[in-house]
Nucleic acid binder design. Structure first.
Lengths: 157, 157
DNA sequence: CCTGAATATTTCAAGCTTGAAGTATCGCCC
DNA sequence: GGGCGATACTTCAAGCTTGAAATATTCAGG
């Protein structure tokens, strides 16, 4: 492999922030890829399917399609396809919404709840292992820092 | 929207780590979506194209296909398609590698370098704005914390 | 030289993702 | 009660992504 052009020694803040972003992206992508791989190899499923099941599982009365896409921050058309496949697999069902023939309520089947319980337990273990470097204090600090980033609050002690 | 099942008040460490992971994912996805949107709306391009150009730009002598996929941690077949499209747009060229007819070296064209310079400047500005909550100290701390997560080192003061 | 394992890359099918366009229904307002 | 903008959802084309299979070439022994 040829050598890259080295970057300048005097680094402005914007470059430093860029390095943070790139490293953040690398870290989250690495863990996400690991999760995808385990879902596929160990559980014959995918992360989008898991995400949809996780969203529905938290709402015992089911969710409308648009509620799912809102919670997951993905497009409506995207959810249509994933719910189609999960329904084919018998993990969830679409039910009519009384009083609104446009809408549907999506609910996990008994099989879906059982499958998801297994997936969720495994998922929590993977994350627990991957983030084992974080103790309770470190986790709390990280949560606060992420809130600050999200809200754009200034970096304070 | 119906109400979700509230989570238990006494929270084990694994749940706390899970919350960190979900928030981390939300934050990085939100920024990444913003970057994708701006690349598309303002520059008629995509993040994967940008990533490939960024990788090649750092190596004036060009990169082999497998070097690109290695640097970006994506599959070989993926790079094939993206390079195809960038080549169609005249932003890069594939050159023969003397002494190995299997391999190719991919290099930015003059047009490619010019386009990428504009994209890179805009990109750095976006990140600088999005991470404006981080000062130099905060950025350094974040870099160290990310290294710790990546290596699995224990959370230390 | 020849053969076979290793390497570099492309091709392929399947799935995810989006934004835009299309269909159906609802509900407001005159 | 008839229109008509808003809402709920699906369909579609294009692009990204992967892992596996296919192709071509190199290289190491024998």
């Amino acid at each position: 492999m040829p050598q890259p052009v080295p970057h300048t020694p005097a680094e402005p803040l914007s470059k430093l922030r860029l390095r943070v972003w790139l490293k953040l992206l690398r870290a989250t992508n690495a863990l996400q890829d690991e999760i995808r791989r385990r879902l596929r190899e160990d559980h014959h499923t995918t992360l989008p399917r898991f995400d949809v099941m996780a969203a529905i599982d938290r709402y015992p009365d089911g969710l409308k399609m648009s509620e799912i896409s809102g919670l997951l921050r993905v497009s409506n058309g995207n959810v249509t396809g994933i719910v189609d496949r999960l329904a084919e697999e018998g993990l969830l069902v679409r039910e009519a919404v009384p009083g609104d023939r446009r809408a549907q309520r999506v609910r996990l089947t008994e099989a879906g709840r059982a499958v998801f319980a297994g997936l969720a337990a495994a998922h929590e273990t993977w994350i627990d292992t991957a983030l084992s470097a974080l103790d309770a204090d470190g986790a709390e600090r990280m949560l606060r820092r992420l809130d600050m980033l999200a809200t754009g609050a200034k970096d304070a002690e």
